[in-house]
Simulated scan of single mutants.
Amino acid sequence: MNGSKLARWSRVVNPQTGRGLIIPIDHGLTSGAMDGLRNSAMPARWLNHPSITAVVAHKGMVARLNETGCLLGKGVILQLNGMISSAAQPHRKEMLASIDAALRMGADAVSLDLVFDGEHDSHNLRLLGAVADEASAYGLPILVMVKCLGAQAAGDAAIPRLRRVVRSIWELGGDAVKLQKPEAIGDIPQLLDGLTGDIDVFFAGGPRSSDEEIARLLTLGLNAGAKGLCVGRNVFQNAHPEKFLTALGLRMARQPDTNLALVNAG
């Protein structure tokens, strides 16, 4: 990253450690109202938690949360594209916001949600290339939230496929990626080998799972060179989000270790 990007990115992650706990709450556009995100007031109750370094949201949610003051001191990442799940092509995410909108809203970075399913890969790469060209002129970092689907992303081919997608993203100017966890969590070192020197990696929590599973994902990711987590449902659908965030924050502050026990969040 150049100087302008580094300055903005230092508001997205902890500037001393480079690690981050990023909370995506962009789910409403894709899936509508859901537990924990039925309205903007629900996440506003806990988004000021000190463990959270940044939030990913669409422009309407950012505007409403800014009115509450809960985003003060947090990195704001504006989600630029998306598609509703009921669309004919839900994996083809279209541009819904602009770099200009991100700058006007005071965003520290922008995000793209890209689903590589073998059908829309060229659309994804063209979109990322165009956004990277425009964002670089203003020093805006780009987070790419990646999913790999289809036959090419299954079984033994999953890790090489995902590694190739990540390589394509940083070749086109992406600064950070949110990755789905591999089917076998022990494959994280193989997945990240040689990649983390060129791009910051954050692991997604995926569908709701246990607090202990997310803690293990965080520890294994940090040990392999990842910068932290980008988790939504496992926070906003947690019965005790503040306690869970405190536990994750304590783990983030440690040096990588092999102790996988999470502070009791219940």
Results as ranks from 00 to 15, higher is better:
82 G>N: 01
225 G>Q: 05
10 S>T: 07
200 D>Y: 11
203 F>H: 08
98 S>L: 04
246 T>P: 01
257 D>E: 06
248 L>H: 15
158 A>G: 09
241 P>N: 06
196 T>S: 12
231 V>Y: 12
227 K>H: 15
264 N>C: 07
252 M>P: 11
217 L>W: 14
168 S>V: 00
117 D>N: 10
63 A>Q: 12
207 P>G: 09
28 G>I: 04
191 L>M: 14
73 G>W: 11
261 A>W: 13
29 L>W: 01
13 V>S: 01
221 G>E: 07
29 L>F: 10
110 V>P: 00
132 A>G: 05
18 G>V: 09
88 A>Q: 15
13 V>I: 03
263 V>L: 14
261 A>K: 14
106 G>V: 01
103 L>W: 03
265 A>G: 06
226 A>S: 08
68 T>H: 08
99 I>L: 05
149 L>C: 04
177 V>Q: 09
191 L>Y: 11
94 E>T: 11
189 P>I: 00
52 I>N: 00
43 P>G: 10
44 A>G: 03
67 E>W: 05
35 D>A: 14
9 W>H: 05
205 G>M: 01
173 G>I: 07
213 E>G: 08
173 G>K: 04
161 R>C: 09
238 N>P: 06
225 G>P: 01
76 V>C: 07
95 M>H: 08
230 C>F: 08
1 M>H: 13
256 P>D: 02
53 T>E: 03
52 I>D: 03
113 D>C: 12
1 M>A: 06
23 I>N: 14
128 L>D: 05
243 K>D: 13
86 S>D: 14
52 I>M: 15
100 D>Y: 11
